[in-house]
Amino acid sequence: MADYQETLDLSSYAALGDSFTEGLNDPGPGDRFAGWADRLAGMLAAQRPDGDFRYANLAVRGRLLDQIVAEQVPQIRQIQPDLVTFCAGGNDILRPGSDPDEIAERFENAVLELRRDAGTVLICTGFDTRTVPVLRHLRGKIATYNVHLRAIADRNGCAVADLWSLRTVHDRRAWSDDRLHLSPEGHQRVALLAARALGLPTEQDPAAPWPAQPEPTAAEVRRENLQWARTYLLPWVGRRLRGESSGDHVEAKRPELLPL
């Protein structure tokens, strides 16, 4: 893990991944999404009094691991940033019949390439889906994948943002209405977690309890679940059946290392 002094010396950062890193459902400037990676970039930039900090976000929603490796990883050799965050494989895990052991092997091959071209690599574990409808049955596969990710980080000297242990994202307020992507506050908590994984002190605590609020009634939960299924689940299943991706015809929002 990078130490505090090393973190302060970071002058460039590139984020790789899918919708999680693109920042879906966290509205940002210019009709684009912000997300935890943009928020982390802002925290890192604030540590450089000279203002000399550049940031690229190559993540595109819907991308599978092999697509990220083919489209995004090679660009790191060209731009050679001080920091890369590489969060990938979640969309692969969602696929029926996917093998977390095999996905992890491909993930590590990409990490080896990134370690040659970037100063520091940070990876993210998967979320604990025990409270998420439909996705809770994938919890075992995600846990297996996470064990591999931690071993990969240990073998290759990567920092780890452990999303599985971040219990505050079990609160429904951490998630947007589609229940697949974080809310703005959820993205903020992940950004804080990533910053701390890099050794950057933060005034806010990603594990701070949420303000108390009344629990929904059973009837309210049923209505919310039905509304969610009609609005989000059925269209998602339809795209899968048609072989479509939410990322079709979408390009990276920050394809080059540029000042914030």
Rank of each mutant, 00 (worst) to 15 (best):
V60W: 08
F107Q: 00
R230F: 06
N225I: 07
L180T: 04
G90Q: 10
H181R: 03
G186K: 04
G90N: 09
E251D: 14
T120D: 01
T202C: 14
L166N: 03
P235M: 06
R115D: 11
E203A: 05
L198E: 07
S98H: 01
D177M: 02
L16Q: 03
Q80K: 13
L8D: 08
P206V: 02
A229I: 11
Q67K: 06
L233V: 09
R106P: 00
D101C: 01
E113Q: 15
G42L: 06
L8M: 11
E108L: 04
T231S: 15
P81Q: 08
V147M: 15
A207I: 09
Q213D: 09
S12R: 15
T131Q: 05
V60D: 02
P201W: 12
P209V: 02
P27A: 05
V250N: 00
W36H: 12
C87E: 00
Q80M: 09
Y232S: 04
A218N: 10
L180K: 00
D66W: 07
L258I: 14
A191Q: 05
R139C: 10
G51W: 13
D99A: 05
L16R: 04
R173V: 04
D3I: 05
S11K: 15
V73F: 11
L198A: 02
A37F: 03
N57I: 03
V84F: 00
H170M: 11
S183V: 02
D50M: 07
N109H: 04
H187V: 10
S183Y: 13
D177H: 03
A45T: 05
A151Y: 01
R239I: 03
T85S: 12
L198V: 08
R196Q: 14
W164P: 11
G243H: 08
D205C: 10
G17E: 08
L135K: 06
W236Y: 11
T125V: 06
A191S: 08
R39T: 09
S19K: 02
R130A: 15
E22L: 03
P235N: 11
P255A: 08
A118T: 13
L58W: 09
Q204P: 07
D177I: 00
D117M: 03
P259V: 08
G119M: 06
S12V: 10
T202G: 11
G62D: 02
L65C: 01
E203D: 13
E256G: 10
L64Y: 09
G42E: 03
L94G: 01
N25A: 03
G247E: 11
D154S: 07
V160H: 08
D18C: 02
P201S: 13
R196S: 05
G126I: 02
E185A: 12
L58F: 14
V250Y: 00
A59W: 00
R222L: 10
F86R: 04
G90A: 13
H181A: 00
D178L: 09
P27L: 02
C158Y: 13
I79E: 01
H137V: 12
W36Q: 07
S183E: 07
A197T: 09
